[in-house]
């Protein structure tokens, strides 16, 4: 089946899935924290857009609420929070070093291929759109982990963590038309609390090691040094 045979909604979802995966790659290669947070906000807005579209086209009004929630939380509140923290900690000029950017990108690509491979069993039971959505969201989850692994700045870790949540949310919206409302609200609440707790942690970490470079959190080891 070629892509032009699909209806417009499916094509749009596929486009959004592609864009969301693209933002994940952009984050992976972005060493400035302020821009990293900006790309994260864009990802949140894309997610909200996908949700709102699903709500409108497929006629699931409760998805409007979750679209609003993700726009508010992931598009606006959390990025703003992070942005302010970066400025307050004086990190807005700092560059996070990325070792081996080329290898990192290749690794990211491999993760996308792997996600498609893992999602293959699902394709027999579902449409092309669902397969792509699940594979892309799994890829976004894994790319978020790769982002966390490759960075040393605590802020970048938080962005990676939150983009993992974005990936999960995308899977829920596209493949299952959103989780039940009580679950969505609960997850949104957890994400919000997590963002606040992360903010508290930035100050605790800075007070204890005088920077946000988590490489220097190395006091706890398994054996005596």
């Amino acid at each position: 089946m070629s892509i032009t045979d699909l209806d417009l909604y499916s094509q749009a979802i596929l486009l959004l899935a592609g864009l969301i995966a693209l933002t994940s790659f952009l984050m992976l290669g972005q060493s400035r924290l302020v821009r990293l947070v900006f790309i994260f906000a864009v990802q949140g807005c894309l997610l909200a857009g996908a949700t709102a579209m699903a709500a409108g086209v497929l006629n699931y009004p409760h998805l409007y609420i979750s679209a609003g929630l993700s726009l508010l939380l992931k598009g606006i509140v959390i990025p703003l929070l992070l942005h302010r923290l970066i400025h307050r900690m004086g990190l807005h000029r700092e560059m996070d070093t990325i070792d081996h950017p080329a290898r990192l990108m290749m690794g990211g690509t491999a993760l996308v291929v792997f996600s498609y491979y893992v999602s293959l069993p699902i394709v027999q039971h579902s449409t092309l759109v669902t397969l792509n959505a699940i594979a892309v969201s799994l890829a976004v989850v894994l790319l978020g982990m790769l982002l966390m692994i490759s960075r040393r700045q605590a802020v970048a870790h938080v962005v990676g963590f939150m983009s993992i949540e974005n990936g999960l949310f995308f899977a829920a919206v596209v493949s299952t038309y959103g989780m039940p409302m009580v679950v969505e609200l609960g997850v949104a609440f957890d994400v919000l609390v997590a963002a606040v707790v992360f903010g508290v942690f930035f100050f605790q970490i800075r007070a204890s090691i005088d920077s946000l470079n988590v490489d220097r959190l190395s006091k706890l080891t398994e054996v005596e040094r």
């Binding site: 963590f161 999960l168 090691i209 190395s218 706890l220």
Partner: peptide
């Protein structure tokens, strides 16, 4: 602080898999 950060990141990422 290090232990708490580790706890938060590892369990947060881990439990995200459970949400998937």
């Amino acid at each position: 602080v290090e232990a708490a950060w580790k706890y938060f990141i590892l369990c947060g990422v881990g439990i995200a898999q459970a949400l998937f």
